[in-house]
Amino acid sequence: MSLLNLKNLTMRFGGLTAVDAVTETIEPLLLMGLIGPNGAGKTTVFNMITGVYLPTEGQISFDGQNLVGQKPHEIAGTGIARTFQNIRLFPSLSVFDNVRVGFNNALSIGILGSILQPRSFWRGEKEIAEKIDHLLEMFGLLDQRNELAKNLSYGDQRRVEIVRAMATDPKLLLLDEPAAGMNPTEKQKLMSLIRYLRDEFQIAILLIEHDMHVVMGICERITVLDHGAKIASGTPEEVKNNPEVVKAYLGHSE
């Protein structure tokens, strides 16, 4: 059974059709790329999947549940996590606390428990702290554990954002331009990190990326959007040689 189903997904802003009847499925454990020229509607698709926008038309189902109309935090609870094109961390919180917010729903303690803090409260907090340290260690961020998020380098901030997303224990991870602003070495590291994420955590990953080297290098399937419509879909080889795609990216001669 496929993990995520988009059916005729459409988003109109006034007279502008940002996403036009996109239908797509994502299988579990798939590493999938979503590409297209600027303004093609890629981030809008992400925002509809995660409930930031309510689609004008169409259906989204994830793991058998309907997502349309659910609030972003409810959708996160079903197992979809994401990162943002312009990094969105909690700047005044430490790296540790940024990730700890991702575990908020894993700790089911009510307001009275939070105020009175019985033994079970501390047990829960300790378990979570161990999990966070484990995650930070995996991503090589343990040294920055107590640093405020706003003081980190750009690359570290991107990684913290991924760790925070992983803290919610997702089945599908959406990455919005993870390689933006990285140099070739960092990009190389990012590619192995993304593969590692999929294999280690057994999740599906959907990523938006402009860097063709990254996209072609790691994605097993690629979908291309242009002016909101899906123009191609297939393996990297198929997409690369698709005349529609070449036209969308390079224009065509008359």
Binding site: V52, H73, R82, F84, L89, F90, G102, N105, R164, A167
Partner: peptide, 10 residues
């Protein structure tokens, strides 16, 4: 700090 980011992690 950031409502959209907060919602995105549940």
């Amino acid at each position: 700090d950031d409502e959209i980011a907060a919602e995105s992690v549940g």
